[in-house]
């Protein structure tokens, strides 16, 4: 097998979105400028995101009611599989991820089934993370390790690439559960190989406002405990 066989032949970017503003179009446009194939899944936004995307060459899917980000990602992955993708990249709609990091994630798939972005591997990325959020994520990695046995430097980064095996195994079913947590438990359950790749992060006032509130981490903790018991 040559190196080129190992590299994903057709990688598709999946962007879930819910009530996104103009940031969505900017993010999508940026990806298209880098020649990526993009699937946008509108998770039941009040006003369909199609309005702002119809001039862009993307694949567009829409849940007619809100099901949760995990469900939207799964819908996008199912569609990517239909299109014949052998790798999928999860990408946030709010503009905090950078398309420039995608090649590194895809390259990592040569050596593992799932490559996860981390804000904690490079000092300059870490400097972008607000102080309190950094402390919270540090606690989260301990909790994650305790419950899933995966030692991730960045516990809840939505930027990740899934290779063919991960794409076939991972099935996000729990609509209400934090999908990042569910992915970790499935990585463990299916014995998928994984590694972390340094990715940058751009916090804007928009992405901060759209992002998870700190108290949501309590919900994630409860999910983890329930997942362990039940």
């Amino acid at each position: 097998m040559t190196m080129e066989d190992a590299m994903p032949q057709r990688a598709i970017i999946v962007i879930p979105c819910y009530n996104e503003g103009k940031a969505l179009k900017t993010s999508v446009q940026e990806l298209l400028d880098h020649d990526y194939e993009v699937i946008v899944v509108d998770d039941g936004s009040e006003h369909s995101a199609w309005e702002q995307l119809k001039e862009l060459p993307v694949h567009f899917l829409r849940h007619c009611i809100n099901l949760g980000q995990g469900a939207a990602l799964q819908t996008g992955m199912d569609y990517a599989k239909r299109l014949g993708a052998d790798a999928v990249v999860h990408f946030d709609a709010d503009g905090q991820h950078s398309p420039a990091d995608i090649p590194a994630l895809l390259a990592a798939l040569e050596k593992c089934d799932i490559a996860m972005g981390s804000r904690f591997l490079r000092a300059e990325d870490l400097a972008q993370v607000p102080f309190m959020k950094r402390q919270l994520l540090r606690c989260a990695r301990l909790v994650n390790y305790a419950f899933t046995g995966l030692w991730l430097t960045d516990a809840h980064n939505g930027f990740r690439a899934l290779g063919p095996k991960a794409l076939a195994c991972i099935d996000l079913t729990e609509n209400r559960m934090a999908h990042a947590t569910e992915i970790l438990s499935q990585v463990k359950a299916h014995g998928l190989t994984w590694r972390e790749v340094p990715t940058s992060i751009r916090y804007t006032s928009y992405s901060k406002q759209k992002g998870q509130k700190w108290y949501n981490s309590l919900n994630i903790l409860i999910d983890l405990i329930l997942n362990k018991i039940l």
């Binding site: 862009l56 899917l61 849940h63 007619c64 099901l67 469900a71 239909r82 079913t173």
Partner: peptide, 23 residues
């Protein structure tokens, strides 16, 4: 809820818009 998700996903997949040939 799980059944609803399956139905809505199927619906979304059926109604998918492929705008990529626009270029």
């Amino acid at each position: 809820e799980r059944r609803q998700t399956i139905i809505l996903r199927q619906l979304a997949l059926q109604n998918a818009i492929d705008n990529t040939r626009m270029k």
